[in-house]
C-alpha cells in the first residue's frame, strides 16, 4: 500500500501552477496593504478625541473580527450581486472580504502600538509645531513600529494563509490550481503537499524579513 511519490507531473503544468502562485501573491499583497491602510485609519479613529469616531472604529473591529472570514467571502460573492445587481469577480469579492477582516485585526495591532508610545512624544512633536499627521508620521509611528512589528508579522502570515479560502469561490490561487491538478491527475498527495511546501517557503521568507526589520528597529535602545 506504499504510495509512489511523483512530483514530475507538476513540471508539465508549470504555467497553470505559476498562474496560481501569482494569484496567491496578488490577493495576499492586496489584502495586506489594504488591511494595513484600514488598520491605520481605524486605529486613528479608535484613538480619536471625538466619541463618534471612536465608536465607528469599535463597530468596525467588532463587526469584521467576529464573522468567520469564509462567511464574509461567500457573502461578498453571492449576496452582493443580489442586493446591488452587480456581480463582483472572485478577486474583488475575496480581496474585499479578506482586507476588511485583516483590517479589523490590524486596527487593534496599530492601536496598541500607538498607545505604547509615551504621551510626551506627541507633546514634544506638537510643541515643535507639527500637525497631527506629521506627529504620527515622523515621531509616533516610527516608534510604534517596534511593538507593532511582531504581532503585525503574525497577522500578515495569517492573511497570506487566509487567501487559500478564496479557492472556494473559484479564485485562481495556489490551492485552486492544486485542486484542479489533483482531480486531473489523481494525485492529491503530491498536489496538496506542494501547496503546503509553497506556503512554508513563502511564510518563512516573510518571517525572516520581519526578524531583520525587528533587529533594525531595536538598534537604538
Amino acid at each position: 500500500m506504499g504510495h509512489e511519490w511523483d512530483f514530475a507531473f507538476l513540471l508539465g503544468q508549470r504555467d497553470f501552477i505559476l498562474r496560481g502562485i501569482l494569484g496567491t501573491f496578488g490577493l495576499a499583497i492586496t489584502c495586506v496593504l489594504a488591511g494595513m491602510a484600514l488598520g491605520l485609519v481605524f486605529a486613528a479613529a479608535r484613538l480619536s478625541r471625538f466619541a463618534a469616531l471612536r465608536l465607528l472604529g469599535t463597530c468596525y473591529v467588532e463587526f469584521f473580527r467576529n464573522i468567520p472570514v469564509l462567511v464574509q467571502i461567500l457573502w461578498c460573492y453571492f449576496a452582493i450581486p443580489i442586493i446591488t445587481g452587480a456581480q463582483p469577480g472572485p478577486f474583488a469579492a475575496a480581496a474585499t472580504a479578506v482586507s476588511l477582516y485583516a483590517g479589523a485585526y490590524m486596527t487593534e495591532i496599530f492601536r496598541s502600538g500607538i498607545q505604547s508610545v509615551e504621551k510626551g512624544q506627541w507633546e514634544a512633536a506638537r510643541a515643535i509645531g507639527f500637525g497631527y499627521l506629521a506627529q504620527m508620521r515622523y515621531v509616533v509611528l516610527p516608534q510604534a513600529m517596534r511593538s507593532i512589528t511582531p504581532p503585525l508579522t503574525n497577522q500578515v502570515m495569517e492573511v497570506v494563509k487566509t487567501t487559500a479560502i478564496a479557492s472556494t469561490i473559484a479564485y485562481g490561487e495556489v490551492l485552486y490550481s492544486a485542486k484542479v491538478l489533483s482531480d486531473q491527475e489523481f494525485r492529491p498527495i503530491e498536489s496538496y503537499t506542494a501547496v503546503g511546501v509553497f506556503f512554508i517557503v513563502v511564510l518563512a521568507l516573510v518571517s525572516a524579513a520581519s526578524s531583520l526589520l525587528e533587529r533594525r528597529l531595536r538598534r537604538h535602545g
Binding site: 512633536a125 515643535i128 509645531g129 515621531v139 537604538h220
Partner: peptide, 30 residues
C-alpha cells in the same frame, strides 16, 4: 507652536533619531 519653544521636564527627545536628527526634523519638515 513653531514660534514658541518648549522644554519639558522629561526631555521628550525622539529616541529613534540621532541628536542632530532631533534638532533637524522641525526645520526640515516645517
Amino acid at each position: 507652536r513653531a514660534r514658541v519653544g518648549m522644554v519639558f521636564q522629561q526631555f521628550n527627545l525622539f529616541p529613534h533619531m540621532t541628536v542632530e536628527g532631533n534638532v533637524m526634523i522641525g526645520p526640515m519638515k516645517l
